[in-house]
């Protein structure tokens, strides 16, 4: 089966996120005074072909996150896995 994994990597809570802090102060200066916190992260979309099951895909993605996609010293990750939309047809 073909799967699509959507991975989100962010800095750990305990690590200062200077980018997030800058975005927050920008939003505050624009008048959005309800913004309490901003965390900036990475969003990765992985297309997986020929997996035996969603569980197999999940195991693989978790391993990829630990080994490469996130750095456990500073980052945490989470991901969702779903069946990939069928290909073919018109792509833009």
């Amino acid at each position: 089966m073909n799967l699509r994994a959507t991975v989100t990597v962010t800095l750990k809570r305990s690590v200062l996120d200077p980018q997030g802090a800058a975005v927050r102060s920008g939003l505050l200066s624009m008048g959005y005074d309800k913004v309490r916190d901003v965390r900036v992260g990475k969003h990765l979309v992985l297309e997986l072909d020929g997996c035996a099951s969603p569980e197999e895909g999940s195991r693989m993605v978790d391993e990829m996150c630990r080994r490469l996609l996130a750095n456990p010293v500073i980052e945490e990750y989470r991901f969702e896995i779903a069946e990939a939309p069928s290909r073919g047809g018109h792509e833009c």
Binding site: V15, L16, P18, Q19, A22, N71, V73, I74
Partner: peptide
């Protein structure tokens, strides 16, 4: 080596 690098605080 231990630790990690973050973006410069000046961004």
């Amino acid at each position: 080596l231990p630790g990690a690098m973050l973006r410069n605080d000046s961004l």
